[in-house]
Amino acid sequence: MAGSMEADNTMEVSAPTAERMRHIGSALASVVQGGDVLVLSGPLGAGKTTLSQGLGKGLAVDGPIVSPTFTIARELQGRGADGKPLRLVHVDAYRLGSVEYEPGQASVGRLLDELESLGLDEALEDPGEHTVVLMEWGQQMASAFAQERLEVTIDRSVSLGDDSASLSASELSSQGQRIVTIHAVGSSWIPRMERLRKAISHEHSQ
């Protein structure tokens, strides 16, 4: 069984290995479309980059998926499941925002100023029909600007050292499984959740 299903808009998937994490990313690639915003969160070393690599492979992007921490955002060209060109904007929001953002106009204003300075505000609010945004560490920003989004959260069952941000398949296995929770926010994602469940189940059975 691929994972436990909590609701039509939420599912959980176990990922004991890096290969499995990439398969989940590849399954996500099979249902994404232009205009989507994906928010990826989890502690250091949980496997965010590994999942992103699976997504990138599934979208046939033209470059490697690496952590964009030192560049804030990277743009890669690929194509969707329908073969149409897609631009993947991979954003690392870890260093964005020097304060904790809370609901309210003042916080939204600070977020908007920061995103505007990087040219990311329009990408979040309206990615466009040929753009997919993948944002790491961006839960607060995405909730403020992207009314339609897919939230992907990775939790690990054990505590890892700070130097374990890059994990191999064997390391993932030895350190215990991850639980990937996928939650759809907004009407555009709800019809695709069943397709995503089937894609992940198919990957799991291979």
Rank of each mutant, 00 (worst) to 15 (best):
D82C: 11
D82F: 14
G83R: 00
K84D: 14
K84F: 14
L88P: 01
L88I: 04
L88W: 01
V89K: 09
H90L: 11
H90W: 09
H90R: 13
V91W: 02
D92H: 02
A93P: 13
A93V: 13
A93S: 13
A93Y: 13
R95W: 03
L96Q: 06
G97K: 05
V99H: 06
V99G: 04
E100T: 08
E100M: 09
Y101E: 05
E102N: 12
P103G: 13
G104P: 01
Q105V: 06
Q105I: 08
A106W: 03
A106R: 11
A106P: 03
S107I: 00
S107M: 01
V108W: 04
V108N: 08
R110P: 10
R110G: 09
L111Q: 04
L111N: 12
L112Y: 05
D113Y: 13
D113S: 13
E114D: 08
E114S: 13
E114T: 05
L115K: 08
E116H: 11
S117C: 09
L118D: 11
L118P: 03
G119C: 15
G119S: 09
L120C: 13
D121E: 02
E122M: 11
E122K: 13
A123G: 15
L124T: 11
E125S: 15
E125R: 15
D126P: 14
D126N: 12
D126K: 10
E129A: 10
V133T: 02
V133Y: 12
V133E: 11
L134Q: 04
L134C: 01
W137R: 03
W137F: 10
W137P: 02
G138E: 00
G138V: 00
G138T: 09
G138N: 04
Q139R: 09
M141W: 04
M141T: 07
A144F: 07
A144C: 11
A144K: 03
F145H: 03
A146S: 15
Q147L: 13
Q147N: 15
E148Q: 13
E148C: 12
R149D: 00
L150K: 06
V152F: 12
V152Q: 04
T153A: 14
T153Q: 07
I154M: 00
D155Y: 02
D155R: 09
D155S: 08
D155G: 15
R156W: 02
R156V: 04
S157N: 09
V158S: 14
V158I: 03
V158K: 08
S159Y: 04
S159F: 05
S159C: 05
G161H: 14
D162A: 14
D162M: 06
D163W: 00
A165V: 05
A165T: 01
A165I: 05
A165Q: 01
S166R: 05
L167W: 00
S168L: 01
S168M: 05
S168C: 14
A169V: 03
A169F: 05
A169P: 01
A169Y: 08
A169C: 02
S170G: 14
